[in-house]
Amino acid sequence: MTDMALVRLLEECLSGHWQSSVTIDNVKQLTGGAASQTTAFDAWAEGKLQPLILRCGDDEHQFENALTKPTEASLLELVYQQGLPVPEVIAHIPASDVSGAGFVMRRLAGEALPKRILTDARFATARELLAGQCGAVLASLHNIDPRRAAMLESVSVEDDVLRYRERYREFGQCLPVFDLAFRYLLDTPPTPRQAAIVHGDFRNGNILVDEQGLSGVLDWELAHIGNPIEDLGWLCVNSWRFGRVDKAVGGFGDKRALLETYNRGRDTDVSEQELAYWEVFGVLKWGVICLYQSAIHLQGKQRSVERAVIGRRLSECEADLIRLLKEH
């Protein structure tokens, strides 16, 4: 897509939103390939500079079951109305010659790079607060009546485990540690919990952080309806600790702080033991994503050194899985 055509499209869509002429500036593509883009830009409207993000198109190589952009937008609108710290959706962008279907949302301030969140001195106070804040935000998300999120698919734990195992087996790579962990997940089902909206990718890397802590929750493409404790286990997966292995929650906090605010926010009693099941689930999910990413490269669908090298991260998943299984 050309910058000029995109600018004209955005100006047209946003003029409708603000009921006045809008000028677009500072267009900067953040991520994306041929099919899907995340673009940062500024709009002059109502006499001030409005920092915005455009998300459009759907990545054909996105991990399975990812939401389409219009579905992601309607989910964002729902959770925004419920007071969660997510960007406000400003406009829906229809599919056209210029771009795939998408939406424009406000660009929230905050740092998203895990390394900076974990090392910058200015986030020292934030790091102390983050685990508890994550627990509170997840509690608010999981307290939303899932019937309001009719746009999302509902999956049982067993079906989800079986689906991930099927994906794993399709890649044709025999990893006995994975077989063992899948067997564990199927044999020892977790404490049943009432179905809720699960973010699906709530981790260090998909949150925005400022000096006061959590300021935004991003990347809702893997959202679904299911057992909500999946979100807590995923947040504790070792890969998202970025080397700070003793800080189980995203490399910044501990499980006790996460569970304390979560349980208080939902009047529930999730224990570290219950969390452990979901940590195994999370590591396996990450392992299947690694397999998937390297397969995209190896099968020639999208050649990329990054996708190739990620295949070797399976060893990290295996090392974590064995240790988690040894704990019982």
Partner: peptide
């Protein structure tokens, strides 16, 4: 071979049932 610097999770007191 793949990542000698990687620190796997450590055993905790919590345990899996």
């Amino acid at each position: 071979i793949d990542n000698p610097k990687y620190q796997p999770v450590r055993l905790s007191s919590a345990g899996i049932r």
